[in-house]
Design a protein around this nucleic acid. Structure first.
Length: 311
RNA sequence: GGUCAAGUAGCUCAGUCGGUAGAGCAGAUGACUGAAAAUCAUCGUGUCGGCGGUUCAAUUCCGUCCUUGACCA
């Protein structure tokens, strides 16, 4: 295809109907769907991540779904590499509907990240071990002495750990990356793009919670517990994706920390927390064209997409 | 009916040797550059079960009543 590559992001909180909307648009405009949901990358995490069905995948080409196998873990950097590899392969036809609720990955793809290779397993393990032996206070001190401009909170051991990995592996300061990335845009998405989103008004929170509750029951019915058990049986209980919403609770139940009757309410509650965090993330992005979950104006969304593609 | 526990924040519980109280979870708000559905930050006035008594002062001690649980009848 000689046509220009164009990207339409479809974002918003979980359970908002992004996938269905993307399907509709992809059919109408003859495009492809590309995943940008941090859990749907993984093979075997289907029910709990509400991944698209085989039937849906037949109707429209889907890419970057269910392709990372345990115990491998995805990273935003790897995602970007996979994304461009897919585009360069020429397999995915434009327009590309990039669908998912993981704001961090959307940002990484859209604005770019500093270009670094993965940190070696040795260094990752070393940093982790040092947290154990020296404690988070000492580790933060190490970071602060190396990079006095760091804005990380001492308790945010995940980010402090990552900053120390970058220090030890590449002798580079995270705080400088941020400024450099803002100043020069060479890693930005090189294609024209637009963003549409589905969300709901704060007043409709109860209504949305009901929707999430029904989705939870559906997941339990479709076997999220069995899906989780499969990974536990294979010895992957510490696999990071299993600490995501739904799997985390199913795991707690399977390990006897939650009663069966507590499971559904716990999943719904955790999902609503996720929803709130996703709303907070996307709220600050003024470029997103929003539509309401309960009163979606698909017609106007289609027109917006049409206009964008016609340019 | 009797004995013994327990009744403190939406929930689970600390605590006050008498000077009106604080954690975790939940909730609200926000941050976010390779785990991100993760990680982290900020936010705590509640008849301390009711009513009496002692005291300058009671959620804290005493009495009594109510509720819940366990045990004994």
């Amino acid at each position: 295809m000689s046509e220009k590559t164009k990207v339409v992001f479809v974002v918003g909180p979980t359970a908002s109907g992004k996938s269905a909307l993307a399907m509709q648009l992809a059919k109408k405009f003859n495009g492809s769907i590309i995943n940008i949901d941090s859990v749907q990358f993984y093979e075997g995490l289907i029910v709990g991540s509400a991944a698209p069905s085989e039937d849906e995948k037949k109707q429209v080409p889907h890419y970057l779904f269910s392709y990372v196998k345990a115990p491998d873990e995805m990273t935003a950097g790897q995602y970007i590499r996979d994304f461009y590899e897919l585009i360069e392969s020429g397999k995915a036809t434009s327009p590309l509907f990039v669908v998912g609720g993981t704001g961090f990955y959307v940002q990484a793809l859209e604005k770019g990240m500093y270009d670094l290779p993965e940190v070696s397993e040795e260094i990752k393990k070393e940093v982790l071990a040092d947290f154990e032996t020296f404690g988070s206070e000492k580790m933060f001190t190490e970071l602060k002495e190396f990079d006095p401009d760091t804005e990380l909170h001492p308790n945010d051991h995940y980010r402090v750990g990552r900053a120390l990995e970058v220090k030890r592996a590449f002798n580079l300061k995270m705080s400088e990356f941020k400024n450099a990335a803002a100043a020069d845009n060479k890693n930005k998405l090189p294609y024209p793009s637009m963003k549409i989103g589905l969300t709901f008004e704060t007043n409709d929170k109860e209504k949305f919670a009901q929707r999430v509750h029904e989705r939870t029951l559906k997941m339990l019915d479709e076997g999220i517990i069995e899906e989780t058990k499969h990974f536990l049986d294979d010895g992957f209980e510490n696999w990071a994706p299993l600490s995501s919403v739904g799997y985390h609770e199913a795991k707690a139940y399977l390990q006897g920390e939650l009663k069966r009757e507590e499971l559904a309410p716990a999943i719904t509650q955790a999902t609503m927390k996720l929803v709130k965090k996703q709303k907070t993330w996307f709220k600050r992005d003024e470029a997103i064209l929003w539509s309401d979950v309960f009163t979606p104006d698909y017609g106007s969304l289609e027109r917006e997409v049409q206009d964008f593609l016609a340019k």
